[in-house]
């Protein structure tokens, strides 16, 4: 997870660094943070400890990046939102709606031959719902990618921490 300055092109800088250094990101989500002028990015990077360390350091090298945390080993809440459009017929609709219920998801749009389901949860939950809906005919899926926050009280902006030697020149 990274806190970045909310400047034009910052997403491009981050994405370009990932591409250039050959790091694989499987998802990336960006949005405003609690502090004006700062955005929070959550990305999921595939790789071993060495890769995670390199990603962190290379992110820090970007001038607009203020703070990077590897939250994979922390006590975190991770969530993803997905919109799923599923084909329905009068005979399958009740079954689909029942599944929506079980997964504590919502139907946000109904058409004569399909519904759009909104589901929020960890990645596994979204994956399982998708698997279960597959036989009905999943027409379109839009997933946000994971976003996360650490539980409990953490300093929201640990940017003045003098002990950190990670912010490079």
């Amino acid at each position: 997870m990274a806190l970045v300055q909310d400047k034009p092109g910052v997403l491009n800088r981050v994405a370009s660094m990932f591409r250039r250094r050959g790091f694989n990101i499987s998802s990336l989500a960006v949005g405003h943070s609690e502090t004006q002028g700062l955005s929070r990015m959550t990305f999921v990077v595939e790789g071993d400890e060495y890769t995670v360390e390199q990603v962190t350091k290379q992110l820090y090298k970007l001038i607009d990046v203020v703070k990077v945390s590897d939250i994979s080993k922390e006590d975190v809440v991770l969530r993803e939102l997905a919109l799923i459009k599923v084909r329905t017929t009068p005979s399958t609709r009740p079954e689909v709606l029942q599944l929506v219920e079980i997964f504590r998801s919502n139907v946000v749009d109904v058409s004569p031959d399909s519904v759009i389901i909104e589901v929020t949860g960890d990645e596994d939950k979204v994956d399982s719902l998708l698997r279960i809906l597959k036989p009905f005919g999943v027409r379109e899926v839009m997933r946000t990618g994971r976003v996360g926050l650490m539980r409990g009280m953490v300093k929201s902006l640990a940017m003045d921490d003098p002990g950190r030697a990670s912010k490079p020149g």
Partner: peptide
């Protein structure tokens, strides 16, 4: 090295010093 990203990038270091 003054650039932390150089530490452990190519060679594993026993004592890294950023500065």
């Amino acid at each position: 090295d003054i650039d932390p990203a150089e530490i452990d990038k190519n060679v594993r270091t026993h004592v890294p010093i950023v500065g």
